[in-house]
Design a protein around this nucleic acid. Structure first.
Lengths: 110, 110
DNA sequence: ATTATTGTTCGAATATAATCGAACAATGGA
DNA sequence: TCCATTGTTCGATTATATTCGAACAATAAT
């Protein structure tokens, strides 16, 4: 029960261009879409998209630094969740509109 | 009156990730913001942000290929306008939310 | 203690993007 | 026709991103 936490940007540190940048990558957009669809915390493993762990970790890192994803360590697992409410508060409509846009056209390739 | 036109993507060719990518660059986001604020066609010259012509041209090219900006040649000038209605139709709320987000915090540096 | 699990970090290769001067193309006007 | 204007294209440089194997760190279980 060490609760070693990963550092996340605070709301006032979240930049719109960082969000845009993070969402510009198809893999990352899919991660966000899956998290939103699930509506719950998910481990990195659950979101596996046939890519090496190190690649996924890289994308999660960018999603985290953009402020889109929050990661809580629970045991050996990293529980990821969308920071939807916070981003809505700071940039109303942006993330929701993006999620609505991806909801129709399936980005997944399986 | 040659009306030599530049090629633009049709609505069904406009990809969300391309839009995100285009808007992830501060210079391009500012161009889009200025065009939206102006609410009219503007020449590249009018939007000059203390950068060389070739750099601006590069950014306009990306905005065009993403489907965000439409450029009509009128004489020696290139008139640029936002494809707001079309993008709203395809991805409702996305661009408007981004514009609302940039409306507050001035991205300009002069 | 040893081992398995989960994910991060490192490092190096490859790929993509930004920047900007210089040359170019198209138009309009003197 | 010649020149000015507007913006694009070219080409080379520099900077930034992506990718992924291998080594590592933290925890949990045996």
């Amino acid at each position: 029960m060490c609760m070693r936490q990963i550092k996340h940007p605070s709301m006032d540190q979240i930049e719109l261009t960082d969000i845009m940048y993070a969402l510009a990558d198809p893999t990352r957009l899919e991660i966000v879409t899956l998290l939103a669809a699930a509506g719950r915390k998910m481990t990195c493993g659950e979101i596996d998209l046939n890519r090496p762990k190190s690649s996924m970790s890289h994308h999660f890192k960018i999603l985290r630094s953009a402020g889109l994803v929050e990661t809580a360590i629970e045991g050996t697992e990293h529980m990821n969740s969308l920071r939807l409410e916070e981003i809505e508060q700071k940039y109303p409509g942006v993330l929701q509109a993006v999620l609505k846009a991806t909801a129709g056209s399936s980005t997944s390739q399986e």
